[in-house]
Design a binder for these strands. Structure first.
Lengths: 230, 230
DNA sequence: CCGCCTGCTGACAGTTTATGGCAGTAGCGT
DNA sequence: ACGCTACTGCCATAAACTGTCAGCAGGCGG
């Protein structure tokens, strides 16, 4: 009675492991099910909204993302998710902001009517809306941080001086209307931070920087006078 | 093949409509299923994490909350949810902040390992952490706003003057470290706002105020010079 | 204490649904 | 053209779900 839905979850997880197209035969073997059933399972997942693409002659590819299994949230937890998404939709960089709005819409779509009004404007965020357009792709920066990649920045500081440097990004700071990359600067051999809206251009290298980002973060915290919450 | 899971969703929805305990017989009739099957369905939902409590002689009660059906989120949407929850966990009032942390933990628990590190400190929020303890129950305020209830405030302003007044709350504003109730003040016959941390005491009346909160919000916006985003 | 209502579990037969094998069509790459 | 693959329909079989019946346990009121 729970076997089927669990199998679908397993199938998704398996699909996620591969980057390249996987054939149905392989997936059928891994989930321990016949090929015919696998096709039916794929159809079920697609019907539930999974973004699985199948091409004849190639196989299946799952678009990056994740399917959350059914989960119970308390009223307050739901409220926290809604409020958080709304904040992101307003304060984060445009691309992530859109994603926040999308996530919010998805949640709102399945909420019962009497809870849906939680979503609309019972709360508001005060102050100027973010207006500074980032030239840099903040999503890419965030990914670079996660993967501990070396970043090459073409940067213009507040005095308009332009510099080019290689840095090791380890965190992204969200101020009210500005986002700041925290990193170790190879040029200065010290911690530096850069506003994302002042980045003129950047290159994310494929090479990993030689230290752990969590260690850098901890060391950076130790250099600060006022404690910074993460 | 989708009949069963849909029925479970319907059952949850039905259960949510009642506040008082409902007997299995009633639920069975409403979902169009035998009593025996209903007991099995309840067991299924509980196994999936639904907080349903059944007591002999009384009936079933669903703890306030909601079960989200399986949903697909893109990588960015997930990132938005995570970032939003982390912001709530840091910036909202203690109770909602805890709920945000709980929601985040629930999501993190089901994320595959390679996505879980999205949750930890790749992002940080800068500035002092909220430290002002609200005396008032902000959750209750939010509920009062949703239900358009009259609020009786015992309030001390910045000069320490204490007043008592009836207001019609229509929105909650989130500043950096302070939360503000936006409302129509019966005493002044005008819009007023009150910091939640300066509320000494409050009473939420059962009576609804005579206007729609969305209308109040719109009128209030029109009185502002600088546009406020919601 | 009793009787009543309710939650909860087990067993069994009937029904529904899922599954696997087979056959066939269509699209992609070489 | 050929091989590989996604995809669909059909059908017999296997599995799961469902309803009925029975029985036990626990709260509530008399």
């Amino acid at each position: 009675m729970v076997a089927r839905s669990e199998r679908l979850l397993t199938l998704l997880q398996t699909l996620r492991r591969y980057r390249r197209p996987v054939t149905g035969t392989v997936l059928a073997a891994e989930t321990g099910v016949s090929l015919r059933t696998l096709y039916r399972d794929i159809a079920s997942l697609q019907a539930q909204g999974a973004m699985i693409e199948g091409e004849a002659g190639l196989g299946y590819v799952l678009k990056p993302g994740f399917m959350l299994p059914p989960m119970m949230f308390s009223e307050e937890e739901l409220e926290a998710l809604v409020l958080g998404s709304r904040w992101v939709a307003r304060a984060a960089e445009p691309r992530l902001a859109n994603a926040g709005a999308d996530a919010l819409a998805k949640i709102a779509a399945v909420l019962p009517p009497d809870m849906r009004d939680m979503v609309d404007s019972a709360t508001l965020f005060v102050g100027r809306k973010r207006q500074d357009e980032d030239k840099a792709d903040v999503s890419a920066i965030r990914k670079a941080i996660r993967l501990e990649r070396i970043l090459e920045l073409h940067y213009g500081d507040e005095q308009g001086r332009i510099s080019r440097r290689r840095v090791w990004p380890f965190a992204l700071g969200y101020f009210e209307h500005v986002r700041i990359i925290m990193c170790w600067c190879e040029l200065r051999q010290d911690f530096r931070h850069f506003r994302t809206d002042r980045i003129i251009d950047m290159v994310i290298h494929d090479t990993r920087y030689p230290r752990r980002r969590t260690v850098l973060l901890k060391e950076w915290r130790d250099t600060q006078d006022t404690p910074i919450e993460h």
